[in-house]
Design a binder for these strands. Structure first.
Lengths: 179, 179
DNA sequence: TCAGATTCATCAAACGTTTGATCATTTGGG
DNA sequence: CCCAAATGATCAAACGTTTGATGAATCTGA
């Protein structure tokens, strides 16, 4: 950065994206500023939603969002192989393995060896897990609703469409996927 | 869940959102399905982007995305107080404190006590940090560009607009923020 | 002035995640 | 049939993050 420009007196969470994009564009003409802005904004929005849900719904109940995702998947789709659980809840098999230790210790789900393939693991909710998930989901969905109200119904649909298109494009982008 | 419906033969990462939303709507009439779909989709899209950037750009270089965010902020705005760094890179002061140990150990940045307030911490890039950040940012921005190409320019702007509107609405939503 | 409250940073414990290695089971080709 | 390759799960080490606690410096108001 050859031409140093003084940062604004007050550099905040809210002003940083504009500042960063403009500064990067000025200092590095080769930068793709719009891509930078898109990824930056996407991450900030998600991180805000995640932080709110995690800290207002899950942590106070002694849960975490990843744990909730696993329990929720099992609640919706019924007992299933751990491999499937990992895939649909968007985590690696190794991450799930570690997470299961916590969930099993807390008595929320149980592991069973699969009958048709003795390598495979079958997961199912315990009575306690089954009894807890509905209440937590309701609280989770209430906060989701509060966030959703920021947009008009049509805008919500458009946001979902754009995010899906973004994900679909990952193939062309040769993006790396979780194993 | 009174009326159990068999899950589809193949429940995959891609089919799960539709399955979950429809099932939840059927089993729990009180659910806000559109809010659920929005948050679910937002998280999946972001998690794909994060995983790709992290695993194809940062990890192979011995970096992490959070570490990159800190170094990038320092590179753009110059030396600053740790409090500011934490805020603009979207992490708590405690998380930054832990992260600084790694970055300092790797010789990428240095901590100095502030002169005007002996409690405060001043951060600045080392020569090594300064020398490394540009190359990593270029690689990072190249992957951002690949993702951005999934959308038309107009769609990218609309996505950013909607995400910003979502964030702005967090005030009304009484969302919890990082301290 | 000075004692209480506030602010800044760090620490400790617990957690989820990643990469790379290991072990057990199953599959497939000769 | 048998052995090599592939598959499923776990482990170990390192990392970033959260919450709650602790210690140091600064500020404030009586």
């Amino acid at each position: 950065m050859t031409h140093n420009t003084a940062p604004p007196d007050e550099l905040t969470f809210w002003s940083f994206v504009d500042y960063a994009v403009q500064k990067a564009e000025r200092e590095l003409p080769s930068v793709n500023a719009e891509a930078m802005r898109m990824v930056l904004t996407l991450n900030r929005a998600t991180s805000m939603v995640v932080y709110d849900l995690e800290s207002s719904v899950h942590r106070p109940r002694g849960w975490t969002w990843p744990g909730f995702r696993v329990l929720f998947a099992l609640w919706l789709a019924g007992p299933m192989e751990a491999k499937t659980t990992a895939e649909i809840s968007g985590m690696s098999r190794a991450a799930l393995s570690a997470l299961l230790n916590t969930l099993e210790r807390d008595g929320l789900l149980s592991r069973q060896r699969a009958t048709h393939d003795r390598r495979a693991l079958q997961l199912s909710l315990t009575e306690a897990g089954y009894g807890a998930i509905l209440g937590v989901f309701r609280a989770h969905n209430r906060r989701e609703s509060a966030w959703a109200e920021a947009l008009e119904p049509e805008e919500r649909r458009e946001l979902v469409r754009l995010l899906n298109k973004l994900m679909a494009g990952s193939t062309d982008a040769q993006a790396k996927f979780r194993s």
